[in-house]
């Protein structure tokens, strides 16, 4: 299944780049994330509570960062497994300037299995987009807070 989308941040590309790859920001921004640990360089293991329609559960997964091109592009390889099923995917994230802010575009190829797969593609795409939006909103909030904090200092 293909999931793609766009998001606009008010903050600059260099600020967003820093936060999008910062483990602390990520842990706070990933919806339902309860544990987040670096297990190898640019590889993290995480636990998150996720719900897709009527199917909900705790998932443990692994995220790996690849093909990093500073401030413009990176690829995430992710896999996860929980009681309601599992999945894996690869997402390419592109950042470009958008006035004072940043334009982000993501394109992900995702395969899922188990009850999550059976609840239907339509719900799944909508849920994935919602979670992406929640994630971007949260990470921007984190970034703003951090920027204001350092400005205040």
């Amino acid at each position: 299944m293909r999931v793609d989308g766009e998001h606009r941040f008010d903050l600059s590309r260099s600020v967003m780049w820093e936060h999008l790859l910062n483990p602390e920001s990520l842990q706070g921004a990933i919806p339902g994330c309860t544990a987040f640990e670096e297990v190898a360089p640019e590889t993290w293991e995480l636990t998150a509570q996720v719900g897709v329609g009527p199917v909900r559960g705790t998932f443990t997964g692994r995220v790996e960062l690849r093909d990093r091109e500073p401030e413009s592009r990176y690829t995430l390889i992710a896999s996860g497994q929980g009681r309601p099923g599992g999945g894996q995917g690869e997402a390419v994230i592109n950042l470009t300037d958008d006035g004072d802010g940043t334009h982000l575009r993501y394109e992900a190829d995702v395969t899922v299995r188990g009850a999550i797969a059976r609840v239907g593609g339509r719900l799944l795409t909508a849920s994935a987009r919602t979670m992406a939006r929640q994630f971007f909103d949260a990470i921007e909030k984190e970034a703003k807070t951090a920027t204001e904090r350092s400005a205040a200092r």
Binding site: M1, T111, V112, R113, A117, R118, V119, G120, G121, R122, L123
Partner: peptide, 15 residues
């Protein structure tokens, strides 16, 4: 069935 993964895409009365 999904051509790539072999998942049953129509596995409930929703689909």
């Amino acid at each position: 069935y999904d051509e790539g993964s072999g998942q049953l895409l129509t596995a409930s009365f929703m689909d």
